[in-house]
Simulated scan of single mutants.
Amino acid sequence: MKLFAQLFAVMDKLSEKGARHSARNMGRRHFLAKTGVFLVGAGVMPLLPFDRTMGKAFAADKPKAVDNDNDCSYWRYCALDGNLCSSSGGSITTCPPGAEASKVAWVGTCRNPHDNKNYLVSYNDCCGKATVTNSVNCFTSEGERPGYRMGLHNDINWCMANTNKGYHCTVATLVGIANE
């Protein structure tokens, strides 16, 4: 306990010394200007883009393109977060029997490695059926944006617009070629 008291006393003296030194060498307007810049900068910081890939996008050992639609590396799944319908009774574009496609969806832009074109891919959750335990679960959030813009975020239960809100799996339907 005594050690903490000594530590706080030292920190108190250092803080006081720093404050007195600043007061002698810096005017009030200078201090207010610097404080304003800091506060505005701190307020803008959450709006800056950030890299969620942690450098994986530029890794030398990046996996080759996969043509298996039951694998999370399949090019259409670049923005998919959920269970693959193709591994749980459905296909890449159709829900399994007993499930219905969500009325709302999110759209991602994925590059097809075979023709090097970007495609718009609509991701629809399939709702109304219990989740299968042996289904392949993917979390590929290439280009995902923070959750404050609902249409650009894939961590939402998109079955909320359906009568039966239970999530089962996700399909990836091509919408068209993205404008370059």
Score class of each variant (00 low, 15 high):
Met1Leu: 07
Lys2Gly: 08
Lys2Glu: 05
Leu3Ile: 15
Leu3Asp: 11
Phe4Met: 13
Leu7Thr: 03
Leu7Met: 11
Met11Val: 14
Asp12Ser: 14
Asp12Gly: 13
Leu14Asn: 09
Glu16Phe: 14
Lys17Asp: 10
Gly18Cys: 09
Ser22Asn: 07
Arg29Asp: 06
Phe31Pro: 04
Phe31His: 11
Leu32Thr: 03
Ala33Cys: 08
Ala33Thr: 15
Thr35Leu: 13
Val40Leu: 15
Met45Gln: 11
Leu47Gly: 10
Asp51Pro: 07
Arg52Trp: 11
Arg52Pro: 14
Thr53Ser: 15
Gly55Ile: 02
Ala59Lys: 13
Asp61Glu: 10
Lys62Ser: 02
Ala65Cys: 10
Asn68Arg: 09
Asn68Phe: 01
Asn68Thr: 04
Cys72Gln: 13
Tyr74Phe: 15
Cys78Phe: 13
Asp81Cys: 04
Asp81Pro: 00
Asp81Leu: 11
Asn83Met: 01
Leu84Ser: 08
Cys85Thr: 04
Ser88Val: 01
Gly89Leu: 01
Gly89Val: 00
Ser91Glu: 02
Thr93Cys: 04
Thr94Asp: 10
Ala101Leu: 05
Ser102Gly: 12
Val104Gln: 02
Ala105Trp: 02
Thr109Gly: 07
Cys110Tyr: 02
Cys110Phe: 03
Asn112Glu: 03
Lys117Phe: 00
Tyr119Pro: 03
Leu120His: 15
Tyr123Ile: 00
Asp125Trp: 03
Cys127Phe: 00
Lys129Asn: 07
Lys129Arg: 15
Lys129Ile: 06
Val136Arg: 03
Val136Pro: 00
Phe139Lys: 12
Ser141Cys: 05
Ser141His: 08
Gly143Asp: 08
Tyr148Arg: 03
Arg149Glu: 08
Met150Glu: 12
Gly151His: 06
Leu152Val: 06
Asp155His: 15
Trp158Gln: 10
Trp158Lys: 09
Cys159Leu: 00
Cys159Ser: 00
Thr163Ser: 14
Gly166Ser: 10
Tyr167Asn: 02
Cys169Trp: 00
Ala172Tyr: 11
Gly176Ile: 11
Gly176Lys: 04
Asn179Pro: 15
